[in-house]
């Protein structure tokens, strides 16, 4: 017994030794900066001057900053459009790909390809698609008799446009839904079929409830991603003008945070902004978790 525990301890030690490079990297490049940003958020600091302790000053200033509210509004508008849309389309694609017919793997690949394109390339491509004069989208809209808007150049449409683009990169959501579907035992459907339930009834009363843990997971992760949107807005705003163009209509929260930090060097304020976002995400996740027992069904219970 004794010998084994020594061996176990030795193995433990070796294990830690093996992951030591990662631990050091994590402390220096991840945990360190995170803690430092907490510290920073209570200071006024413009990189070159000395840090000045101002307590909750940065957080107080947030509440009188109209652009803070504005960028929050923009980000939520995006999330409200993007997240449900991605979930619905992801589920739809998964349902279409689930039946065992020939060629599903080809279709799976097709639907997933856009998701492996780097976001910068996707954004650049979509600037062109959204071009009001020469773009692909308004060309098709015109064909069906709709006079398309100015998309990225319009204050009303720039955020929805960026949100719609998210559907094109629905791949990961679709794959996870597909995995969720594969997990559902065939017998449930067969039993329901015998009972005379049609496709919609089976979908409504069997598939969706049994998929609810998947939906729950995807909802939270997609929401977190949506609230942290940066690159798309940075590249696409105003058709490439960036930084909230046109007229701040695409000033996403993270863009504003970046602007405060790197255009105006308000490092303390930028840190405070990032912690408020963290807090918002945390609270939202908590709320979703708390309400989850009302709509998420686990097979075991």
């Amino acid at each position: 017994m004794r010998k084994r525990s020594i061996l176990a301890r030795k193995e433990n030690l070796e294990g830690y030794l093996f992951i030591l490079p990662w631990i050091i990297g994590f402390c220096v490049f991840t945990a360190g900066p995170i803690l430092f940003s907490v510290f920073l958020s209570f200071h006024e600091w413009h990189i070159f001057d000395d840090m000045k302790w101002i307590g909750l000053g940065n957080y107080k200033m947030l509440f009188t900053d109209p652009l803070f509210y504005h960028s929050l509004k923009v980000t939520f508008e995006y999330a409200i459009i993007n997240v449900p849309l991605v979930l619905i389309v992801g589920l739809l694609l998964a349902l279409l790909l689930y039946p065992k017919v020939k060629g599903t793997s080809v279709f799976r690949t097709i639907f997933y390809i856009p998701s492996i394109v780097p976001v910068v390339a996707t954004a650049t491509l979509w600037i062109w698609i959204y071009n009001p004069e020469y773009g692909l989208l308004n060309f098709f809209l015109e064909k069906i008799g709709i006079d398309g808007p100015d998309w990225l150049y319009s204050t009303e449409w720039v955020v929805p446009a960026i949100a719609f683009m998210g559907v094109w990169t629905v791949g990961p959501t679709m794959i996870i839904y597909l995995a969720g579907l594969e997990d559902i035992p065939q017998v449930y459907w067969d039993a329901a079929k015998v009972d005379g339930a049609n496709y919609w009834q089976r979908l409504r009363y069997i598939t969706l409830p049994l998929l609810s843990p998947t939906t729950f997971f995807l909802f939270i992760t997609n929401l977190m991603g949506a609230l942290q949107t940066f690159a798309q807005a940075y590249i696409m705003g105003g058709g490439g003008e960036g930084f909230g163009a046109p007229a701040n209509a695409s000033l996403f929260y993270c863009l504003y945070l970046y602007e405060q930090g790197w255009s105006w060097f308000n490092m303390g304020y930028a840190s405070a902004l990032s912690w408020i976002l963290t807090l918002i995400i945390f609270v939202l996740t908590l709320i979703i978790f708390k309400t989850s027992n009302k709509w998420v069904y686990y097979e075991r219970s």
């Binding site: 071009n131 009001p132 004069e133 773009g135 100015d150 105003g238 058709g239 490439g240 003008e241």
Partner: peptide, 8 residues
């Protein structure tokens, strides 16, 4: 020209 025409 409009900004979108310029960029395109």
């Amino acid at each position: 020209p409009s900004p979108s025409i310029i960029s395109a």
